[in-house]
Nucleic acid binder design. Structure first.
Length: 358
DNA sequence: TCTGGGGTCCTAGGACCC
DNA sequence: TCTGGGGTCCTAGGACCC
């Protein structure tokens, strides 16, 4: 028996949840984002496969999506609670599978660790369990580590299963652009290309010292290994613990006066503090994010003199940071992040340098 | 043509200490 | 007249993910 990593990813999760509770939307282009008003400043969270056929995708401004969408397209507001509860059902149905360890990595995806000689059979059981419990479909990637399992899923979509291991890695991925690797975005793709590295195979064959001098000791080694599909194998069921909470808002009309900006900051800081307080942990640091119109973003923060559980102190810290903003410029987005103390847990966990939850 | 909101982690460089 | 070298902490910024 061998150890396998399965990556379970829901198909068009948010759109599927919406269609499930409104069966009359089945087969229509469904676009979920913002408050569901395509004339507002907001972006697409998820588009159904029918909408994707018109070139609409996640992250696209709703205004653009509206232009591409056909007459019968349906725009819906984001309903976090509905997706949260669907997500919980999905995860519990998977956790109930015999012999699996589950690590949640997002609303609609997770890793399963399992020891078996027939990972495809486990994958099919996972799909059946999720469908039975929720009426939703998912795809499953099978790998000999997390990186390969995660990438395999894309080849399984929709509703399929795909296996990617050291044996077929280069055959499947060798000629693909580096951008197809998990953790390589547009910027890193460009910096790699500047070194003559454009494909996965070229990344694997690259000189590691050169990558280290370009990206630093950690990321250089990580990217080099990524070319060969190397990655961690341990699936960690420990519940995820937030390190910080933030609130941000894009204003439909830009803010123009210091008074408006300070009022908005105080409100956001209060919400961010409350999110931390709900976890019973003090705030150690406050960050500000500001997007000046039209589109220049600045972030900066300050460590507090001491960890605090006082709401007023966190708001005061945010306002103090806010007083450094340029009063001459219009503000289109403000965000406040509150970082919390970490619970004592012997912080020796080895992390994967892929940003976001893992 | 217009670009959300919620997160995490890495790196460079300055400050400061010995 | 020439200003080390190592370590740690902090801040700002960048990049990526869902």
């Amino acid at each position: 028996m061998a150890d396998w990593v399965l990556h379970v990813d829901m198909d068009q999760f948010i759109a599927a949840v919406e269609v499930l509770r409104r069966p009359e939307l089945a087969g229509l282009p469904v676009i979920v984002g913002g408050r569901g008003d395509p004339t507002e400043r907001a972006v697409v969270s998820t588009a159904s496969y029918e909408a994707r056929a018109f070139g609409i995708g996640s992250g696209m401004p709703l205004k653009i999506a509206a232009r591409k969408a056909p007459e019968d397209a349906v725009f819906l507001p984001v309903d976090h609670e509905a997706y949260e509860s669907a997500s919980t059902e999905v995860m519990s149905s998977l956790r109930a599978l015999p012999g699996v360890v589950l690590e949640v990595i997002g609303w609609d995806e997770c890793f399963l660790g399992v020891e078996t000689d027939d990972p495809e059979s486990v994958a099919r059981s996972a799909q059946a369990a999720v469908l039975e419990a929720t009426g939703l479909h998912c795809s499953v990637g099978i790998g000999d580590n997390k990186v390969r399992a995660k990438i395999a899923t894309e080849f399984g979509k929709p509703r399929g299963v795909f296996r990617l291991t050291v044996d077929n890695w280069f055959e499947v991925m060798g000629d693909k652009p580096t951008r197809d690797l998990w953790g390589v975005g547009p910027k890193v793709q460009k910096r790699l290309a500047a070194h003559g590295i454009t494909t996965v195979r070229e990344l694997a064959d690259a000189d590691e010292d050169q990558l280290v001098s370009e990206f630093g000791p950690r990321m250089g080694v990580w990217y080099h290994g990524l070319g060969s599909g190397l990655g961690p194998i341990v699936v960690d069921p420990t519940p995820w613990v937030a390190r910080s909470h933030s609130r941000e808002t894009t204003f439909q009309q830009n803010l123009t006066t210091p008074a408006e900006i300070l009022a908005a900051l105080a409100e956001l800081a209060g919400h961010a503090f409350d999110d931390c307080a709900d976890e019973g942990r003090p705030v150690v640091r406050v960050h500000l994010k500001v997007r000046y119109a039209p589109f220049e973003t600045k972030t900066f923060g300050r460590k507090l003199a001491a960890p605090t559980t006082e709401r007023d102190e966190v708001i005061a810290a945010a306002l103090a940071l806010g007083s450094t903003l340029d009063p001459q410029r219009e503000v289109r987005l403000l965000g406040v992040r509150a970082e919390m103390t970490m619970p004592d847990s012997g912080d020796s966990v080895e992390r994967t340098p892929v940003r976001g939850r893992i």
